[in-house]
Design a protein around this nucleic acid. Structure first.
Length: 379
DNA sequence: TATCTTCTTTGTGGTAAAGTTGTGG
DNA sequence: GCCACAACTTTACCACAAAGAAGAT
Protein backbone atom coordinates (compact mmCIF):
# COMPACT_ATOMS: atom_id res chain seq x y z
CA UNK A 1 0.00 0.00 0.00
CA UNK A 2 1.39 3.32 -1.02
CA UNK A 3 0.43 6.42 0.80
CA UNK A 4 0.26 9.77 -0.91
CA UNK A 5 3.34 11.75 -0.04
CA UNK A 6 3.01 14.22 2.74
CA UNK A 7 3.61 17.73 1.50
CA UNK A 8 7.10 18.93 2.23
CA UNK A 9 7.62 22.49 3.34
CA UNK A 10 9.11 23.56 0.00
CA UNK A 11 6.11 22.06 -1.75
CA UNK A 12 3.89 24.08 0.47
CA UNK A 13 5.81 27.20 -0.39
CA UNK A 14 5.53 26.48 -4.08
CA UNK A 15 1.82 26.21 -3.68
CA UNK A 16 1.49 29.50 -1.88
CA UNK A 17 0.67 31.49 -5.05
CA UNK A 18 -2.46 29.40 -5.35
CA UNK A 19 -3.44 30.47 -1.89
CA UNK A 20 -3.36 34.19 -2.31
CA UNK A 21 -5.99 35.96 -0.29
CA UNK A 22 -8.89 36.97 -2.50
CA UNK A 23 -9.33 40.17 -0.56
CA UNK A 24 -5.86 41.67 -0.20
CA UNK A 25 -4.14 39.57 -2.87
CA UNK A 26 -1.01 39.86 -0.80
CA UNK A 27 -1.15 37.42 2.07
CA UNK A 28 -1.45 33.68 1.98
CA UNK A 29 -5.04 32.56 2.37
CA UNK A 30 -5.61 30.15 5.22
CA UNK A 31 -9.39 30.19 5.46
CA UNK A 32 -12.25 29.59 3.09
CA UNK A 33 -15.66 31.22 3.40
CA UNK A 34 -18.38 29.20 1.69
CA UNK A 35 -20.86 32.04 1.70
CA UNK A 36 -18.46 34.28 -0.18
CA UNK A 37 -16.71 31.51 -2.09
CA UNK A 38 -13.55 33.31 -1.11
CA UNK A 39 -10.13 32.45 0.20
CA UNK A 40 -8.99 34.75 2.96
CA UNK A 41 -6.04 35.35 5.21
CA UNK A 42 -6.83 35.71 8.89
CA UNK A 43 -6.49 39.47 8.89
CA UNK A 44 -8.82 39.96 5.96
CA UNK A 45 -11.22 37.44 7.41
CA UNK A 46 -11.41 39.56 10.52
CA UNK A 47 -11.95 42.68 8.48
CA UNK A 48 -14.41 41.24 6.00
CA UNK A 49 -16.55 39.42 8.50
CA UNK A 50 -16.82 42.29 10.93
CA UNK A 51 -18.83 44.33 8.50
CA UNK A 52 -22.31 43.49 9.65
CA UNK A 53 -24.50 40.99 11.42
CA UNK A 54 -25.03 38.82 8.37
CA UNK A 55 -21.41 38.51 7.37
CA UNK A 56 -20.43 37.60 10.90
CA UNK A 57 -22.58 34.48 10.61
CA UNK A 58 -20.60 33.13 7.67
CA UNK A 59 -18.97 29.82 8.42
CA UNK A 60 -15.29 29.77 7.65
CA UNK A 61 -13.09 26.72 7.40
CA UNK A 62 -9.43 26.04 6.87
CA UNK A 63 -8.35 25.82 3.26
CA UNK A 64 -7.74 22.34 1.88
CA UNK A 65 -4.02 21.55 1.88
CA UNK A 66 -4.30 19.54 -1.31
CA UNK A 67 -6.32 21.64 -3.73
CA UNK A 68 -6.03 25.06 -2.07
CA UNK A 69 -9.48 25.93 -3.30
CA UNK A 70 -12.04 24.24 -1.11
CA UNK A 71 -12.98 24.30 2.55
CA UNK A 72 -11.34 21.54 4.53
CA UNK A 73 -13.64 19.10 6.25
CA UNK A 74 -11.28 16.29 7.22
CA UNK A 75 -8.05 16.32 9.17
CA UNK A 76 -5.70 13.40 8.59
CA UNK A 77 -3.16 13.12 11.35
CA UNK A 78 -1.19 10.62 9.28
CA UNK A 79 -0.69 13.22 6.58
CA UNK A 80 -0.71 16.06 9.02
CA UNK A 81 -3.00 17.80 6.55
CA UNK A 82 -6.52 19.03 6.22
CA UNK A 83 -8.52 17.96 3.19
CA UNK A 84 -11.74 18.90 1.51
CA UNK A 85 -14.19 16.11 0.78
CA UNK A 86 -12.94 15.49 -2.73
CA UNK A 87 -9.26 15.47 -1.83
CA UNK A 88 -9.95 13.34 1.21
CA UNK A 89 -11.66 10.82 -1.01
CA UNK A 90 -8.82 10.82 -3.47
CA UNK A 91 -6.20 10.51 -0.75
CA UNK A 92 -7.95 7.88 1.28
CA UNK A 93 -9.72 5.68 -1.18
CA UNK A 94 -9.55 1.97 -0.45
CA UNK A 95 -6.63 1.33 -2.72
CA UNK A 96 -4.51 3.91 -1.03
CA UNK A 97 -4.74 4.58 2.64
CA UNK A 98 -8.09 3.73 4.15
CA UNK A 99 -6.85 3.31 7.69
CA UNK A 100 -5.38 6.71 8.28
CA UNK A 101 -6.38 8.46 11.45
CA UNK A 102 -8.86 10.99 10.20
CA UNK A 103 -11.53 13.09 11.85
CA UNK A 104 -13.91 15.85 10.89
CA UNK A 105 -12.78 19.43 10.87
CA UNK A 106 -15.22 22.10 11.85
CA UNK A 107 -15.57 25.67 10.78
CA UNK A 108 -16.37 28.64 12.91
CA UNK A 109 -18.46 31.74 12.76
CA UNK A 110 -18.46 35.04 14.51
CA UNK A 111 -15.53 37.28 15.17
CA UNK A 112 -13.18 35.16 17.20
CA UNK A 113 -10.34 36.81 19.03
CA UNK A 114 -6.76 35.68 18.55
CA UNK A 115 -7.17 33.59 21.64
CA UNK A 116 -10.17 31.88 20.15
CA UNK A 117 -8.41 31.31 16.86
CA UNK A 118 -5.58 29.64 18.67
CA UNK A 119 -8.12 27.26 20.09
CA UNK A 120 -9.71 26.80 16.70
CA UNK A 121 -6.40 25.83 15.16
CA UNK A 122 -5.42 23.60 18.01
CA UNK A 123 -2.44 25.52 19.29
CA UNK A 124 -4.01 26.29 22.60
CA UNK A 125 -4.01 23.59 25.20
CA UNK A 126 -6.74 24.40 27.63
CA UNK A 127 -6.03 21.35 29.63
CA UNK A 128 -2.33 21.86 30.27
CA UNK A 129 -1.89 25.03 32.18
CA UNK A 130 1.59 26.35 32.01
CA UNK A 131 2.36 24.92 28.61
CA UNK A 132 -0.01 26.84 26.48
CA UNK A 133 0.71 29.45 23.92
CA UNK A 134 1.99 32.67 25.36
CA UNK A 135 2.38 36.21 24.16
CA UNK A 136 5.42 38.26 24.73
CA UNK A 137 5.70 42.00 25.02
CA UNK A 138 5.31 42.46 21.29
CA UNK A 139 2.29 40.28 21.11
CA UNK A 140 4.29 37.50 19.54
CA UNK A 141 3.10 34.00 19.97
CA UNK A 142 5.37 31.43 21.48
CA UNK A 143 5.12 27.94 22.89
CA UNK A 144 5.66 26.33 26.19
CA UNK A 145 7.88 23.75 24.58
CA UNK A 146 9.38 23.16 21.18
CA UNK A 147 8.22 19.69 20.40
CA UNK A 148 5.65 20.78 17.91
CA UNK A 149 1.98 21.20 18.24
CA UNK A 150 1.13 17.67 19.06
CA UNK A 151 1.49 18.23 22.77
CA UNK A 152 -1.18 20.85 22.73
CA UNK A 153 -3.84 19.15 20.75
CA UNK A 154 -6.14 18.06 23.49
CA UNK A 155 -9.79 18.87 23.43
CA UNK A 156 -11.66 19.16 26.66
CA UNK A 157 -15.31 18.27 26.65
CA UNK A 158 -17.25 21.44 27.30
CA UNK A 159 -19.05 21.64 30.57
CA UNK A 160 -22.36 22.21 28.93
CA UNK A 161 -23.76 21.83 25.46
CA UNK A 162 -27.08 23.58 25.25
CA UNK A 163 -29.58 25.65 27.10
CA UNK A 164 -31.44 22.48 27.94
CA UNK A 165 -28.38 21.10 29.55
CA UNK A 166 -28.05 24.19 31.61
CA UNK A 167 -31.63 24.04 32.74
CA UNK A 168 -31.41 20.35 33.52
CA UNK A 169 -28.35 20.84 35.59
CA UNK A 170 -29.16 24.15 37.08
CA UNK A 171 -30.06 22.72 40.42
CA UNK A 172 -26.88 20.79 40.89
CA UNK A 173 -23.42 21.82 41.85
CA UNK A 174 -21.62 19.71 39.32
CA UNK A 175 -20.36 22.40 37.04
CA UNK A 176 -22.83 22.13 34.18
CA UNK A 177 -21.72 18.86 32.69
CA UNK A 178 -23.64 18.26 29.48
CA UNK A 179 -26.29 15.58 29.68
CA UNK A 180 -27.13 13.16 26.93
CA UNK A 181 -24.38 14.49 24.76
CA UNK A 182 -21.61 12.15 23.74
CA UNK A 183 -18.19 13.41 24.68
CA UNK A 184 -16.40 15.23 21.97
CA UNK A 185 -13.45 13.50 20.43
CA UNK A 186 -10.04 14.38 21.66
CA UNK A 187 -7.64 16.23 19.41
CA UNK A 188 -10.64 17.86 17.93
CA UNK A 189 -8.83 21.09 17.46
CA UNK A 190 -5.77 19.71 15.79
CA UNK A 191 -6.48 21.13 12.42
CA UNK A 192 -3.54 23.29 11.49
CA UNK A 193 -2.58 21.12 8.58
CA UNK A 194 0.34 21.93 6.31
CA UNK A 195 0.14 25.69 6.73
CA UNK A 196 0.69 25.81 10.44
CA UNK A 197 3.55 28.26 10.18
CA UNK A 198 1.60 30.64 8.00
CA UNK A 199 -1.34 30.52 10.37
CA UNK A 200 0.88 31.25 13.32
CA UNK A 201 2.54 34.06 11.43
CA UNK A 202 -0.81 35.65 10.72
CA UNK A 203 -1.92 35.13 14.29
CA UNK A 204 1.19 36.95 15.46
CA UNK A 205 0.31 39.86 13.22
CA UNK A 206 -3.21 39.89 14.57
CA UNK A 207 -1.96 39.69 18.13
CA UNK A 208 0.06 42.83 17.58
CA UNK A 209 -3.11 44.63 16.59
CA UNK A 210 -5.12 43.14 19.41
CA UNK A 211 -3.48 44.42 22.58
CA UNK A 212 -6.14 43.06 24.90
CA UNK A 213 -5.95 39.65 23.40
CA UNK A 214 -5.47 37.91 26.69
CA UNK A 215 -7.85 38.94 29.33
CA UNK A 216 -9.24 42.28 28.51
CA UNK A 217 -7.13 43.86 31.19
CA UNK A 218 -5.08 45.68 28.66
CA UNK A 219 -1.71 44.53 29.91
CA UNK A 220 -0.04 43.25 26.82
CA UNK A 221 3.39 43.96 28.13
CA UNK A 222 3.60 40.96 30.29
CA UNK A 223 3.76 37.40 29.19
CA UNK A 224 0.20 36.30 29.34
CA UNK A 225 -0.96 32.77 29.18
CA UNK A 226 -4.07 32.08 27.23
CA UNK A 227 -7.25 31.57 29.08
CA UNK A 228 -9.99 29.03 28.48
CA UNK A 229 -12.48 29.71 25.76
CA UNK A 230 -15.31 30.29 28.21
CA UNK A 231 -13.93 32.17 31.16
CA UNK A 232 -15.22 31.57 34.63
CA UNK A 233 -16.73 35.00 34.65
CA UNK A 234 -18.90 34.07 31.71
CA UNK A 235 -19.95 30.79 33.23
CA UNK A 236 -21.10 32.61 36.30
CA UNK A 237 -23.26 34.82 34.16
CA UNK A 238 -24.52 31.81 32.31
CA UNK A 239 -25.72 30.28 35.52
CA UNK A 240 -27.69 33.35 36.25
CA UNK A 241 -29.27 33.31 32.84
CA UNK A 242 -30.08 29.62 32.87
CA UNK A 243 -33.08 30.08 35.04
CA UNK A 244 -31.53 30.06 38.43
CA UNK A 245 -32.45 33.66 38.89
CA UNK A 246 -35.04 34.25 36.28
CA UNK A 247 -36.10 37.56 37.62
CA UNK A 248 -32.73 39.03 36.96
CA UNK A 249 -31.71 40.58 33.69
CA UNK A 250 -29.23 38.51 31.79
CA UNK A 251 -25.88 40.18 31.80
CA UNK A 252 -23.36 40.38 29.12
CA UNK A 253 -19.78 41.21 29.69
CA UNK A 254 -16.81 42.22 27.63
CA UNK A 255 -15.13 38.93 28.37
CA UNK A 256 -18.01 37.01 26.92
CA UNK A 257 -18.28 39.26 23.92
CA UNK A 258 -14.65 38.85 23.16
CA UNK A 259 -14.82 35.10 23.09
CA UNK A 260 -18.19 34.12 21.74
CA UNK A 261 -18.31 32.41 18.43
CA UNK A 262 -19.70 29.15 17.24
CA UNK A 263 -18.20 26.00 15.93
CA UNK A 264 -19.87 24.48 12.97
CA UNK A 265 -19.48 21.10 11.49
CA UNK A 266 -18.98 20.77 7.80
CA UNK A 267 -22.68 20.35 7.38
CA UNK A 268 -23.34 23.68 8.92
CA UNK A 269 -24.71 22.21 12.10
CA UNK A 270 -23.76 23.81 15.32
CA UNK A 271 -21.20 21.39 16.56
CA UNK A 272 -19.68 22.88 19.63
CA UNK A 273 -21.86 24.34 22.24
CA UNK A 274 -18.95 25.77 24.05
CA UNK A 275 -21.25 28.67 24.48
CA UNK A 276 -24.18 27.85 26.65
CA UNK A 277 -27.01 28.86 24.39
CA UNK A 278 -26.56 28.76 20.64
CA UNK A 279 -29.18 31.33 20.00
CA UNK A 280 -26.96 33.81 21.68
CA UNK A 281 -24.01 32.83 19.57
CA UNK A 282 -24.36 35.92 17.50
CA UNK A 283 -23.93 39.18 19.15
CA UNK A 284 -27.35 40.68 19.31
CA UNK A 285 -30.01 38.39 18.00
CA UNK A 286 -31.72 38.04 21.32
CA UNK A 287 -33.65 40.96 22.59
CA UNK A 288 -32.44 40.46 26.08
CA UNK A 289 -28.98 41.33 24.93
CA UNK A 290 -29.95 44.48 23.23
CA UNK A 291 -28.71 47.27 25.36
CA UNK A 292 -31.31 49.51 26.67
CA UNK A 293 -30.79 53.16 26.99
CA UNK A 294 -31.87 52.90 30.56
CA UNK A 295 -29.83 49.83 31.30
CA UNK A 296 -27.05 50.59 33.66
CA UNK A 297 -25.25 47.50 32.47
CA UNK A 298 -25.04 48.43 28.86
CA UNK A 299 -24.77 52.07 29.58
CA UNK A 300 -21.74 51.20 31.53
CA UNK A 301 -20.17 49.54 28.51
CA UNK A 302 -21.29 52.16 26.13
CA UNK A 303 -20.22 55.12 28.09
CA UNK A 304 -17.52 53.72 30.27
CA UNK A 305 -17.17 54.68 33.84
CA UNK A 306 -15.92 57.98 32.67
CA UNK A 307 -17.49 59.80 29.80
CA UNK A 308 -14.12 60.33 28.26
CA UNK A 309 -13.23 56.71 28.62
CA UNK A 310 -13.77 54.44 25.67
CA UNK A 311 -15.97 51.42 26.20
CA UNK A 312 -14.52 47.99 25.76
CA UNK A 313 -13.29 47.80 22.19
CA UNK A 314 -15.25 44.69 21.26
CA UNK A 315 -18.49 46.03 22.66
CA UNK A 316 -17.78 49.31 21.00
CA UNK A 317 -17.27 47.64 17.66
CA UNK A 318 -20.43 45.60 18.04
CA UNK A 319 -22.32 48.79 18.60
CA UNK A 320 -20.82 50.24 15.48
CA UNK A 321 -21.47 47.20 13.37
CA UNK A 322 -24.98 46.40 14.44
CA UNK A 323 -27.57 49.11 14.50
CA UNK A 324 -29.79 47.02 16.75
CA UNK A 325 -27.17 47.09 19.43
CA UNK A 326 -26.61 50.73 19.19
CA UNK A 327 -28.79 52.83 21.36
CA UNK A 328 -27.32 55.87 19.73
CA UNK A 329 -27.29 56.92 16.14
CA UNK A 330 -24.36 56.08 13.95
CA UNK A 331 -22.12 58.95 13.19
CA UNK A 332 -21.58 59.77 9.55
CA UNK A 333 -18.02 58.56 9.82
CA UNK A 334 -19.10 55.23 11.20
CA UNK A 335 -21.67 54.93 8.50
CA UNK A 336 -19.12 55.66 5.82
CA UNK A 337 -16.79 53.12 7.31
CA UNK A 338 -19.50 50.49 7.32
CA UNK A 339 -20.46 51.27 3.75
CA UNK A 340 -16.88 51.15 2.54
CA UNK A 341 -16.40 47.83 4.27
CA UNK A 342 -19.49 46.53 2.59
CA UNK A 343 -18.30 47.69 -0.80
CA UNK A 344 -14.88 46.18 -0.31
CA UNK A 345 -16.43 42.88 0.67
CA UNK A 346 -18.72 43.04 -2.30
CA UNK A 347 -15.71 43.42 -4.56
CA UNK A 348 -14.13 40.30 -3.15
CA UNK A 349 -17.14 38.11 -3.81
CA UNK A 350 -16.80 35.31 -6.26
CA UNK A 351 -19.81 34.41 -8.31
CA UNK A 352 -18.38 31.54 -10.28
CA UNK A 353 -20.50 28.45 -9.99
CA UNK A 354 -19.16 25.68 -7.87
CA UNK A 355 -19.90 22.13 -9.04
CA UNK A 356 -20.17 19.72 -6.17
CA UNK A 357 -20.77 16.57 -8.16
CA UNK A 358 -19.01 16.43 -11.49
CA UNK A 359 -20.80 13.20 -12.38
CA UNK A 360 -24.14 14.95 -12.15
CA UNK A 361 -22.89 17.74 -14.33
CA UNK A 362 -21.79 15.28 -16.98
CA UNK A 363 -25.10 13.54 -16.84
CA UNK A 364 -27.06 16.78 -17.01
CA UNK A 365 -25.09 17.90 -20.05
CA UNK A 366 -25.86 14.68 -21.87
CA UNK A 367 -29.53 14.63 -20.98
CA UNK A 368 -32.20 15.04 -23.60
CA UNK A 369 -34.08 18.29 -23.26
CA UNK A 370 -37.26 19.88 -24.50
CA UNK A 371 -37.12 23.65 -24.56
CA UNK A 372 -34.29 23.59 -22.09
CA UNK A 373 -36.04 21.33 -19.67
CA UNK A 374 -35.06 17.78 -18.93
CA UNK A 375 -37.22 15.39 -20.87
CA UNK A 376 -38.39 11.96 -19.91
CA UNK A 377 -36.54 9.10 -21.50
CA UNK A 378 -38.65 6.17 -22.62
CA UNK A 379 -37.03 2.91 -21.65
C1' DT B 1 -25.71 -5.22 15.65
C1' DA B 2 -25.54 -5.82 10.80
C1' DT B 3 -27.67 -5.98 6.47
C1' DC B 4 -31.15 -5.09 3.23
C1' DT B 5 -35.03 -2.50 1.31
C1' DT B 6 -37.69 1.49 0.62
C1' DC B 7 -38.39 6.26 0.62
C1' DT B 8 -36.87 11.06 0.43
C1' DT B 9 -33.79 14.65 -0.80
C1' DT B 10 -30.29 16.77 -3.58
C1' DG B 11 -27.97 18.52 -7.60
C1' DT B 12 -27.27 19.16 -12.42
C1' DG B 13 -27.87 22.57 -17.27
C1' DG B 14 -30.52 24.89 -21.12
C1' DT B 15 -34.36 27.48 -22.02
C1' DA B 16 -38.35 30.50 -21.40
C1' DA B 17 -40.66 33.59 -18.70
C1' DA B 18 -40.60 37.12 -15.47
C1' DG B 19 -38.39 40.88 -13.48
C1' DT B 20 -35.23 44.89 -13.53
C1' DT B 21 -32.73 48.69 -15.46
C1' DG B 22 -31.58 52.14 -18.83
C1' DT B 23 -32.77 55.23 -22.64
C1' DG B 24 -35.31 58.26 -25.53
C1' DG B 25 -39.50 60.68 -26.91
C1' DG C 1 -43.20 62.73 -14.73
C1' DC C 2 -44.97 59.21 -17.80
C1' DC C 3 -44.76 55.74 -21.24
C1' DA C 4 -42.78 52.44 -24.53
C1' DC C 5 -39.20 49.76 -25.80
C1' DA C 6 -34.73 47.39 -25.64
C1' DA C 7 -31.27 45.22 -23.14
C1' DC C 8 -29.95 42.75 -19.42
C1' DT C 9 -30.59 39.80 -15.20
C1' DT C 10 -32.91 36.53 -12.38
C1' DT C 11 -35.80 32.64 -11.58
C1' DA C 12 -38.49 28.47 -12.39
C1' DC C 13 -38.92 24.31 -14.70
C1' DC C 14 -37.92 19.64 -16.04
C1' DA C 15 -36.00 14.12 -15.18
C1' DC C 16 -33.30 11.19 -12.87
C1' DA C 17 -29.02 9.24 -10.73
C1' DA C 18 -26.87 9.37 -6.47
C1' DA C 19 -26.70 10.01 -1.66
C1' DG C 20 -28.67 9.71 2.66
C1' DA C 21 -32.31 8.58 6.05
C1' DA C 22 -35.55 5.55 7.91
C1' DG C 23 -37.58 1.29 8.65
C1' DA C 24 -37.71 -3.81 8.36
C1' DT C 25 -35.56 -8.22 8.87
Amino acid sequence: MTDPPVLEQDQVDQRTPNRLCDFCSASTATLYCRADSAKLCLTCDREVHSTNQLFIKHTRSLLCDACDSSPASIFCSTHGSVFCQNCDWESHSLSLSPVHDRRPVEGFTGRPSVTDLLSVFGVDDLGKKGQGVVFDADGLVGYGSDDGLSDYLVWDTPSFASLDDLIASSGSEHNFQAMGVPPLPKNRNAVCGQHKEEILHQLRDMAKLEPNVDDGQGDSKALVELKPLVPEQTIEQTRNFAGIKQDEEPRITPTYEATKFQWYSDTGEVADQGLPYPNLGSYVETDCLVPDKDSDICQGHMNGSNENESPHPVISEAFQVFPKVSARELTSQERETAISRYKEKKKSRRYDKHIRYESRKVRAESRTRVRGRFAKVDH
